[in-house]
Structures are given as structure tokens and as C-alpha cells.
């Protein structure tokens, strides 16, 4: 089964660039990515630019509307994701807990739909 692990955290809640904690934090991400690859669980994973770069697009009456900013104004923002291939939710939760941001933010784990043909 594929599980999408969405990484949410409040701005400034994690280690900031330039501080002593930031290096180890980034290294932990590198190690995690390496681990899920080695374990054969990794399908995709990326970090996203901050929400100040977000654009929200909608089409109403055949007119494209592109608005500056994220869709929802929430305290915790989507900062990145991993798409993992796991046996079940237990395994997915185990890996999600290893994502470094889980220590200060939250990881939302969602199974990917398999369409019946």
C-alpha cells in the first residue's frame, strides 16, 4: 500500500538555518531518506518552498483564478512530503514517526486510493 506522509509544522517551530541545531536536523532528513530508500519503502519525497511562495488556483465559470497565498490559513503549514510503500498502517506510522519534523510538528498519514478498474 502507498501512504502519503504530509509534513506539517508551525513556522519557526523547528531548528532554524544558521543555528547549531540546523545541521544535525538536515542530516537527520538525509539519513531518513537514505533509510527509506534502503528499506525499499521510498517512492517520492520532497521539501516545499514556504507558503509565502504559494499560489492557489481555481477555475470558476471557465475563468482561471490564481490567488497569492495558500488555500487554508492555518498555524501549521505543509512543508514537504514522503510517499512511502508500506505493508500497512502500523508500518507507515513507524516510518512517519522517524521523520525529523515529527519531533516538533505533525505528520499526517493518508493511504493512497487504489482505483478499481
Amino acid at each position: 500500500m502507498q501512504f502519503m506522509c504530509l509534513i506539517y509544522s508551525a513556522p519557526n517551530s523547528g531548528p532554524k538555518p544558521g543555528t547549531a541545531e540546523f545541521g544535525p536536523f538536515m542530516k537527520a532528513y538525509g539519513d531518513f531518506t537514505q533509510k527509506v530508500q534502503d528499506d525499499g519503502k521510498f517512492i517520492a519525497g520532497d521539501a516545499l518552498q514556504g507558503i509565502e511562495t504559494a499560489t492557489t488556483v481555481s477555475v470558476r465559470n471557465e475563468k482561471i483564478e490564481a490567488i497569492d497565498g495558500p488555500f487554508a490559513e492555518t498555524k501549521e503549514q505543509l512543508g514537504g512530503y514522503y510517499l512511502l510503500d508500506c505493508a500497512d498502517i502500523d508500518e507507515a506510522v513507524k516510518y512517519a514517526a522517524m521523520i525529523p519534523s515529527a519531533a516538533h510538528g505533525r505528520i499526517e498519514v493518508r493511504p493512497v486510493v487504489v482505483w478499481d478498474d
Partner: peptide
């Protein structure tokens, strides 16, 4: 049914 909750003893 959909979230991959396994039917097994931990």
C-alpha cells in the same frame, strides 16, 4: 477497510 489497518496480532 481503507487506511491499511492490519488484521493481525501485533
Amino acid at each position: 477497510a481503507f487506511a491499511g489497518i492490519p488484521y493481525k496480532v501485533p
